[in-house]
């Protein structure tokens, strides 16, 4: 599982109201949600984010409301991975369950800056700049999370286990 893209940097305690404000939750349409992604943190994000871009943030990313539309907004806008010093627990579970790669790293937020081109190497547990000059180690997600991610999210993961129980 690898991912390559351009870095968007954010600070500590990015909450889910910043990722997708409550006033946009009336309508569940991934494209509508993506058009307001990160609006509370960076008004330009939604219009400038490109497929495969990578969010790198400080501690406690995704704190606050349990709204999984926060993950949907990021995923639909093309974000391929979120790397943070730490994650708020519900956001972390939501991301895994919806198949968005989320990885903890103690140093990525210090090492990389906005616009860096980076590649996530899960096997090697590191994120590296494409020019080879910078690197930050990653904490590989727990095995259960990896199994759900590999299945493509919780729904396919459970479907395959329901199938096994029936079969």
């Amino acid at each position: 599982m690898t991912s390559e893209g351009r870095v968007w940097k954010f600070g500590d305690d990015v909450n889910t109201d910043m990722i997708i404000p409550g006033r946009y939750l009336d309508r569940y349409d991934p494209k509508h949600l993506a058009s307001h992604a990160m609006e509370g943190a960076d008004k330009d994000f939604a219009s400038k984010v490109r497929p495969d871009d990578i969010v790198i943030a400080g501690k406690n990313f995704g704190c606050g409301s349990s709204r999984e539309q926060a993950v949907v907004a990021l995923k639909e806008s093309g974000v391929s991975a979120v790397i943070a010093k730490s994650f708020a627990r519900i956001f972390y579970r939501n991301a895994i369950n919806l198949g968005l790669l989320v990885i903890a790293s103690d140093s990525a937020a210090e090492v990389f800056k906005d616009g860096d081109m980076v590649a996530v190497d899960l096997g090697g547990s590191a994120v590296r700049s494409k020019d080879g000059t910078k690197m930050a180690p990653l904490h590989k997600p727990p095995e259960r999370a990896m199994a759900i991610l590999r299945a493509g999210g919780l729904i396919p993961y459970i479907k395959s286990s329901l199938g096994r129980e029936v079969g």
Binding site: S66, R67, E68, V71, I90, R93, N94, N97, L98, G153, L154, I155, I158
Partner: peptide, 10 residues
């Protein structure tokens, strides 16, 4: 404890 909607579906 809180979960997301998809996990509640699970």
């Amino acid at each position: 404890t809180g979960l997301g909607a998809t996990e509640v579906a699970g």
